[in-house]
């Protein structure tokens, strides 16, 4: 009987640590995109709530309960992380398995904003980009999903095939921020 061994996107890339900031891989149980059909956002959100206890998030936001989270990832689109979706949702929305499409990283530590300021054009200042906020923007030359998941913690999603580039760019930014801090 043949057996296929699974590999995660950042298997041999993470974790890395530079001074106070660490970058580690996050591997959710599953990631499923949910795109309600015409006029079906509310009914899909209700179906999600009854099946998994969370509603669909509005633009730029995320909802969550326990280890299940839904993040807003584009016009009329959200992604549910942490659980296989109940088939009951199918008539209301297009569901598509994205579990293997994304490399998910967690950037943690004081100065995370400064690291991302080297790569992301959006303002991640805590006063503006609060816990639970999600943005689809750029990470260097790549498209990325960036979420604040704590006072000093961000989650970053890039396409799986670009995990190497993302880790390299984040590590360079971490080193540069640390080198500047050493001057002060």
């Amino acid at each position: 009987m043949v057996d296929l061994i699974a590999k995660t996107p950042c298997a041999d890339l993470l974790p890395i640590k530079v001074e106070a900031v660490t970058l580690s891989e996050v591997t959710p149980e599953a990631i499923t995109s949910i795109m309600p059909y015409e006029g079906k956002w509310e009914v899909a959100s209700e179906a999600l709530k009854s099946a998994h206890g969370i509603t669909l998030p509005g633009p730029g936001r995320s909802t969550g309960k326990g280890d299940i989270r839904a993040i807003w990832t584009g016009a009329g689109q959200a992604m549910v992380l942490g659980a296989r979706l109940d088939a009951g949702l199918a008539p209301h929305a297009a569901l598509s398995d994205q579990s293997d499409a994304w490399a998910l990283m967690r950037l943690e530590g004081a100065g995370g904003e400064d690291v991302l300021a080297r790569l992301t054009p959006i303002d991640l200042n805590p006063g503006v980009f609060k816990r639970g906020h999600v943005a689809r923007s750029l990470l260097g030359h790549m498209n990325a999903v960036i979420a604040r998941v704590g006072a000093e913690a961000f989650e970053i999603m890039v396409f799986r095939s670009m995990a190497g580039t993302a880790v390299h760019e984040l590590e360079e930014a971490m080193k540069s921020v640390a080198a500047r801090a050493a001057l002060r």
Partner: peptide, 11 residues
């Protein structure tokens, strides 16, 4: 309208 004010490099 959905994402808010963004740098033109995203468009």
């Amino acid at each position: 309208p959905l994402c808010g004010d963004r740098d033109s490099r995203e468009y």
